[in-house]
């Protein structure tokens, strides 16, 4: 039996510095609604359940098909993409929406994920291919290598893994799982490998891979099933070898 209404509890915050508050909404149920379409309904008619007029709820979204990661928020306490959170799969109770807690809130459900992008810059998560002349085609990858790399290339910097990681918080400098896993991706690419050492050195310092506590929550939370913890094992091996080289080879 289909329900008639959808109850929503949304954590609101007007600006990065203002205090947060809860607001409740009630919407008529429609088939195949997801969290984003509910937020769009509220935007059309921003009135709370008890009839108070309010501002439209602010959130971020772009692709609407779980590839950009921008619409990530806590849906009933779990970090996930709101564009693929179907209302009918969320159970009968009220749906709770909160912004991610590990990133600064911009407004309402939108957070500033730039710490993650800054960490990607720190580990040089790219492949330098620009030169003053045509460098020619790059080396080829075997299908087996492609398969491994493809898994890591699906990361959409959504921040789910960062949200659940107990080591990623205000008290620690840990850069978090997503940027570290990208080191695994770029270091296995034949051209990217040329900067492998720089990337490894970056994650060997404070805030790097050594600060992971192996709670392995990140891998449970990742919506793209990226084998994060395998990357950490592999990078643990690579950094150990580099460390030994540096200790005994200087």
């Amino acid at each position: 039996m289909a329900r008639k209404t959808i109850a929503l509890r949304i954590k609101r915050q007007d600006s990065p510095t203002s205090r947060s508050r809860w607001e409740e909404f009630s919407l008529p149920w429609q088939a195949n609604m997801n969290v984003v379409s509910c937020l769009m309904e509220i935007r059309k008619h921003p009135v709370t359940r008890d009839g108070h007029a309010t501002t439209p709820v602010h959130w971020e979204a772009s692709c609407l098909e779980e590839v950009c990661g921008s619409c990530t928020m806590l849906v009933n306490g779990k970090p996930r993409q709101s564009c693929t959170a179907l209302i009918d799969s969320l159970g009968d109770g009220p749906v709770t929406l909160e912004p991610l807690t590990k990133f600064p809130v911009v407004r309402d459900l939108q957070v500033d994920r730039s710490p993650m992008f800054d960490a990607l810059k720190r580990v040089k998560a790219w492949i330098p291919i620009d030169g003053s002349y045509d460098l020619g085609p790059g080396p080829r990858l075997s299908p087996a290598e492609q398969e491994v790399s493809y898994a890591f290339s699906r990361c959409m910097t959504c921040g789910c893994c960062m949200e659940v990681c107990p080591q990623y918080n205000d008290k620690s400098d840990f850069m978090g799982p997503a940027p570290i896993a990208q080191v695994r991706l770029f270091n296995s690419h034949p051209t990217g490998r040329m900067n492998a050492r720089e990337r490894l050195e970056e994650i060997m310092g404070k805030g790097g891979l050594v600060d992971c506590g192996n709670a392995q929550l990140c891998v449970e939370a990742c919506p793209k099933d990226i084998p994060l913890t395998e990357a950490f094992g592999e990078l643990g091996r690579q950094t150990t070898l580099l460390w030994l080289q540096q200790l005994f080879g200087r």
Binding site: G77, V164, P166, Q167, N169, K171, S172, F174, D211, G213, N214, A215, Q216, L217, E220, A221
Partner: peptide
């Protein structure tokens, strides 16, 4: 020093590995 950088969250995410992580500390 390591334990002070942790922010345990088994209440929210009660996976076995997360318990292991907390118990280790």
């Amino acid at each position: 020093l390591i334990a002070t950088t942790a922010q345990a969250n088994v209440g929210k995410h009660g996976y076995a590995r997360n318990w292991q992580y907390l118990l280790q500390r």
